[in-house]
Amino acid sequence: MTTIEAPRTPAAKPQRRRGINWEKWGWMYMRASGVVLVVLIFGHLFVNLVAGEGVKAIDFAFVAGKLADPFWVVWDTLLLWLALIHGANGMRTLVNDYATNPTVRRILLGAILASTVVLLTLGTLVIYTFDPCPAGQPADLLPSFCPVNQ
């Protein structure tokens, strides 16, 4: 049996793509990470540049001291991952908007993905394998808890 199409049926119904709706989750990620990043970034700036002695306090010992504290390790890890993915997703959006040539678009999106992965790996490695007391360095440059300063 053949049926007659209902009047004014659109020629092609938009196909619902199966699987995860990346646009929706991407949009939600931008909102959620944005709110968290406001706290993380301004907290980071305040502690590094304003609190205590201010910007003068920043040296190797200051950074090493922070990275030896599990609180700042978690803080910096969150900051790194949320900000990098937030930025990369923003750049992906720009490319989707303005790169009309499919080849150029694929190259740019690939470059964004690759650089994000490299930066995330390097950053995470630095945070977790950082040695605050490298051997053979002058004691006055190292944090106070290093064996040379004990």
Binding site: R17, E23, T93
Partner: peptide, 14 residues
Amino acid sequence: LDILNDKEGVWRCR
């Protein structure tokens, strides 16, 4: 809502 939940739907809005 399903139609607008598409890649070219409401999520394009900035």
